[in-house]
Nucleic acid binder design. Sequence first.
DNA 1: CGTGTAAGGAATTCTGACACG
DNA 2: CGTGTAAGGAATTCTGACACG
Lengths: 102, 102
Amino acid sequence: MNQEEYKKKKVMGIGVVSELTELTERKIRYYEERKLILPRRTEKGTRLYSFEDVDLLIEVSKKVEKGVQTYEIKKEMKKESNADLRKKLLQGQINAHFGIRK
Amino acid sequence: MNQEEYKKKKVMGIGVVSELTELTERKIRYYEERKLILPRRTEKGTRLYSFEDVDLLIEVSKKVEKGVQTYEIKKEMKKESNADLRKKLLQGQINAHFGIRK
DNA sequence: CGTGTAAGGAATTCTGACACG
DNA sequence: CGTGTAAGGAATTCTGACACG
């Protein structure tokens, strides 16, 4: 498992996430309700989060504190995600054109 | 938090560790009893492990399967840890002698 | 809208012990 | 020695709801 995976692997319960983010469990579950965060679930339904999720939650809560509504935050996130996709797509085209090396 | 920290931060419950290592919780607790693994505990006493702990558990269980006794594994681990310390000490001396740069 | 809280149930984890080989 | 298991309790997490502003 490489470093990226350590960051993205969803392994923490909500208790630890609450400790790490300093957010109440209520807030964490609410941001999920608003689709701002997507933990995985065990078969029995308990939520599991990654370090990446923790960082995201902290960013989200900062914006909420600033008065931004969750709906707006969601929109911003979609934009960023689209920008990332375009970037990857572009890189893919470059690779296809010039060939991929190393 | 840097990559090293993602690896060393103790954040996973025993259930997830059991899933990741494919070891029973019984085995995981037993290796702790034998001091081969040292999870942190929440205030209420539930165990929390790091990705590093997961890797260590897998290594330990491989040795146990080969027939090595936990006591022997513990001895091996002490040796390695001492070797690491000597290495660090030595590097410290080199740095002190030649000066530390970048 | 974002968040607190009380409610009841289900699932998790803990310890100490007995069993087996 | 290493591991399974049943036992009972304690702590965790879950959902849906009501409250407030």
